[in-house]
Amino acid sequence: MSTATIALGVDQPDTGSRASWAVRDALTVTWRYLLGYLRIPEALFFSSVQPIMFVLLFRFVFAGAINIPHLGYVDYMMPGIFVQSVAFGSVATSIGLAEDLQKGLIERFRALPMARSAVLAGRTTADLVRNIWVVVLMTGVGYAVGFRIHTNPLEFLAGCGVLLLFAYALSWGFATIGLSAPNSETAQVMSFPVLFPLTFASSAFVPVKSMPGWLQAWANHQPVSVVVNAARGLMDGHLALFSSESVGAATLHALAWCAVMVVVLVPLAVHRYRRVG
């Protein structure tokens, strides 16, 4: 082809298959975002404070007014607050990508010979890592205000796994929103109309039976309720009080939702990433 290519090709790229590069590129991008989190301690601090405040709010402000038969409210609400907090956490994907787009970083990434999936995979993975931290933190705070695991540690961890997987799948949806928003502030505002009906019109904080009939239809079947039910079964073991499903069935139901979300939301986000700008 050209003499220039030969003369300049001193830095021969590493060899490796496409798939292994896709993973390595995604990890490089994950590393970049996690470093970014550590470099802004204020953001890390305040994004940790918010889930703690939700625990304290529901434990001490609303708990007295909400009567759950046969179960202390703290044990009822904790699985719900776990799911609500990680769902809120996945909005970070939308904000982060909108910011990168605004600053021209996505443009630079798109002109690099890296895997096309790496930016999205890296960003969602970094947000998953942050959500793991949120779950660890909330477990500690929950314990301090009276929450107890009524099953066993393994089932509790399985419950955490299900809700983290749900948040991960959801963050691919927020990725599409972030890549469609004109800036990061708008990305955040655009995410709320999706987030609020999902998290609050669900079984997370109050029994669905207490809602009007038309809302029950939504609240019983939407993914947050399904995931909360699974988490409740795996963490509390009192699922029979609120649902006709067994713990195993509820867990499979939740995993099926996660799978559907991944199958739909990942291609949507990748499609958006390819045509952005």
Binding site: D14, T28, L35, R39, G104, L105, R108, P113
Partner: peptide, 25 residues
């Protein structure tokens, strides 16, 4: 680019290394 497309939260060295890794060096 026309806009300085670099990551504010990383150091200068980290920015350049990241581009190197993503170029598969």
């Amino acid at each position: 680019g026309q806009y300085a497309a670099v990551d504010e939260n990383l150091t200068g060295a980290e920015n350049l290394r990241m581009v190197g890794y993503l170029n598969h060096l």
